[in-house]
């Protein structure tokens, strides 16, 4: 048996009401596998914030999850507009989300900072006009 498990999710950017389905599925899987509640919670928050970002900023994308005995790796890839100023985007409270998104309960400028806070390591690769890949590692 391989010591790594992989899951792949396609995130549709067209339907905000469905955002979070991938995170919900992964959370249920991790619970079933017996991961600690703390780890499950951290992964769920990181992935959900990332998934929401994909839907509201980048018309969706793909998420690859790799689970090994030591950690869980989340790779969220989109072909959206890219992030012009990562430093600014990382600041709590800074958001480029529209009024419409705010009225849906997001765009408070907490997404990326939440992802950083709950992951053990986070990396953002972004190219304007090409897309963004956010990689997060959460230790078991």
């Amino acid at each position: 048996m391989s010591d790594k498990l992989r899951f792949h999710y396609e995130v549709s950017g067209e339907d905000f009401t469905r955002a979070g389905e991938a995170s919900s599925d992964l959370k249920a899987k991790l619970k079933l596998m017996g991961a600690s509640p703390e780890v499950v919670r951290k992964v769920a928050i990181c992935m959900y914030e990332g998934e929401i970002n994909m839907v509201i900023h980048a018309c969706g994308g793909v998420i690859d999850v790799t689970i090994s005995p030591a950690d869980i790796l989340l790779e969220l890839k989109d072909v959206g507009p890219g992030i012009p100023d990562i430093e600014k985007a990382m600041q709590e409270g800074y958001s480029t989300a529209s009024e419409n998104i705010r009225s849906l309960g997001f765009g408070a400028g907490m997404g990326l900072s939440n992802m950083k806070k709950y992951s053990d390591e986070m990396k953002i690769d972004t190219v304007l006009g090409v897309g963004t890949t956010v990689t997060m590692r959460i230790n078991m």
Binding site: F16, T17, A19, Y48, F106
Partner: peptide
């Protein structure tokens, strides 16, 4: 909206 339930689920 449904994201209220999703958020509750994650937490």
């Amino acid at each position: 909206n449904p994201q209220v339930v999703r958020t509750a689920e994650m937490m």
